[in-house]
Design a protein around this nucleic acid. Sequence first.
DNA 1: CAGTGAGCGAGCTTCCGCTTGACTT
Length: 765
Amino acid sequence: MIKNLVIVESPAKAKTIEKFLGKDYKVLSSYGHIRDLKKKDFSIDISKNYKPLYEIPADKKKLVDELCKLSKEAETVWLASDEDREGEAIAWHLYEVLGLSPEKTKRIVFHEITKNAILHAIDNPRSIDNNLVNAQQARRILDRIVGFELSPILWRKVKPALSAGRVQSVAVRVIVEREREIQQFKADAAYRVIALFKVKDDKGNITEMKAELNQRLQTKEEALALLESCKKADFPIEEITQKPLKKSPAAPFTTSTLQQEAARKLNFSVSQTMMVAQKLYEAGHITYMRTDSMNLSEMAIATAKEEITQSMGEQYVKTRQYHTKSKGAQEAHEAIRPTYMNKAAIDGTAQEKKLYDLIRKRTIASQMSDAELEKTTVTIGIGENKYKFLAIGEVIKFDGFLRVYRESTDDETESSDSDARLLPPMSVGELLDFAEISATERFTQRPARYSEASLVRKLEELGIGRPSTYAPTISTIQQREYVEKGDRTGEERQFNTLKLKSNKISDTTGKEMVGNEKAKLFPTNIGIVVNDFLTEYFPDILNFNFTANVEKEFDNIAEGEIEWTTAIDSFYKAFHPVVERTSAIKTEHKVGERILGVDPKSGRQVSVKISRFGPVVQIGTADEEEKPVFASLKKSESMETISLEAALKHFELPRTLGEYEEKEVTVGAGRFGPYVKHNSVYVSLPKGGDPMTIKLEEAIVLIEEKRKKESEKQIKTFEQDPDIEVLNGRYGPYIAYKKKNYKIPKGKVPAELSYEECMSIINSK
DNA sequence: CAGTGAGCGAGCTTCCGCTTGACTT
């Protein structure tokens, strides 16, 4: 018999809270939502005023039974889910499903997991806020309507198993639009002029000081003219200004900022960050990792202060409260911070240690004083010229929070200004000599493609998605093949440098690589076609402000100003007819189909489109007597821009090279790249191998190499069981047994494995 | 991860948010 049953959302939280509350309280977790719209069906009864049809998912049944049993036994049930829209709905679903009565049910909330906060909550129970619950139901139903009405249109008009939704479709749009900006981008060149002046440092030694012209010069003529004028000009120091500069620390981590910094500083993917953070949370090292709040508890602020004072001194402390600015933030939790501020290091994997360290430093820094810097600007004249050279120096007077933590940025732009340092002593009126002056052609940078983390930042800016969905959204749009994560080698670009040295001007051409990108998100052909289709027919849903607008409606519902069904009805009445009309449009062609021209060989039409299995080139049409022929598009080829010639190239393969050992040798391009086929054996072409130009002799070499490898592949077999083989694979030796492969433990020599040893390796798996 | 190299069609697919395991490799 238990007196009090407390239900929270997370089991780790339950464990902590139970310690605070003592033996009269049993604390259990609902593991998030316990009930949802049915998974398969539409599950909204439009004719009954949008009545939702809820069900308890199969994997929650056991848990709900358990909660049911204990809630019957308890005197009081405390619904302690989070204080936000979803949390309120969880409380309400629990109330309904567990069949609770108003008398024995209390709704409590707390923002931080401290004993005081929880006892305070227990002393101040309330009842379930039905308006807030209804706002959640509206959110849920709107998302279901959008997702389940749009997706089937895509199945019919583009490709089966695709999906669309309020969040994912806008995420794809962001990426497609960035790609178009990049395509349309034209780099502007301008000359950046830098002078190296000779100055004495404080010890009297000559050093070089870098100064940049206060303006970039648009043309080579201007640059040449400037350098020419520098030949006989004086370079007087006209002005020296000193300006104090303050830098403030970044706010403590939210989910989104943690994902961004872990990507920049630790190279973690968004989902990797979340997995590691989850482990830290479960081990009790950090507070909850899915949060949009920058708030720190009083206890956290106090212990941070203590920690800073002890380790660095009082002058480093500055108590700060941060407020979340992001759209639609619900702030049900604290910021992500260490549970115990004084714990400098934790036990765990290398990744866990690194992420913990990042979180701790960021939190500590957020409670530290500003860094104080002094920025010195020296203005240097060029004879009578209107242009000036500027030398900029920066000195840190007091490091403040910089002692602990410096936030990174995504900009990989020219970083030469960021290494500004202390300038040597100088005085106004002093005339300077230069060592050299160079004018280098610099180009404006095209916009960068999104990384996972910068996409999260963009979505957060737009108020789209929630801390719990950023990582899943990114994996959804990749699973649907709308977007691909990949690298792209940049292009080589030439640039011109003019240099004035020893009274002579040289003119040289340099080379640089531009636009190198790693682990960035690229839209696929399917992503582009789906996006263009949706933005054309459903501009309202794809609008970047759609979520922000419906959030306002949800707020109105939460305030009790409007019925949730009224809000949904007005949305549905506008949306559904568009769905109907769009589905009814009889298109002769598939969405995204492009006719490229006529095949000169057969006289048949050549087109590109998205087929059941992805983008293809097609020769002929379905209505002709002779069936059309197809070839898959390569990933790097764009449906929008591919030419007729490039499309026809696909049909030149497979081609026959000749005969070897009385069997035909052919070369083709398969799913996994180009290959040579001989006697029904496939050999992949080495990297860079071109199936269009490969010669028979080269192909034979490949075939022989494969045979040799094949013969060396088998290391050992056993009489006892011919199914067991010790083989040499691409990644080293392994054991193959009945279609499955097994790793050989370290320290074993593959050729010396006994039958018994192999069996035990197999059985231990 | 340990080899792959079609096919144009039956039934199925799908949303967003809240939360963790339980399964492999």
